[in-house]
């Protein structure tokens, strides 16, 4: 189980990437909060699956151009 935030650039907003994520990998996605605008969109979701499958899935969606962050923003502080 992992909580993540996806940020979609403008050109990917119309792509069904979260659907594809759960099709290509053995993962269950559960969207908790989202805000999608014409220029940018973000989705906060929970992903269920094995650790390896989650890692593969996140690597894949990252390679599609989606930014993957921990929920709650960057952790490293000044």
């Amino acid at each position: 189980m992992k909580k993540v935030k996806f940020t979609f650039p403008t050109d990917l907003i119309k792509e069904p990437l979260i659907y594809l994520l759960s099709q290509k990998f053995k993962l269950i996605t559960n969207i908790r909060r989202a805000d999608v605008r014409p220029d940018v969109g973000w989705v906060v979701l929970e992903i269920e699956g094995t650790d390896e499958e989650i890692e593969l899935g996140l690597d894949w969606i990252g390679s599609q151009g989606v930014r993957v962050d921990p929920v709650g923003g960057d952790i490293i502080e000044g």
Binding site: T7, V40, R67, D69, G73, D74, E77, G78
Partner: peptide, 18 residues
């Protein structure tokens, strides 16, 4: 919109501010 930090002010380098 999250960004990649690239600044001399490293203590303020948070690209995805909570």
């Amino acid at each position: 919109k999250p960004t990649k930090p690239n600044t001399v002010a490293k203590s303020l380098g948070i690209g995805n501010p909570a």
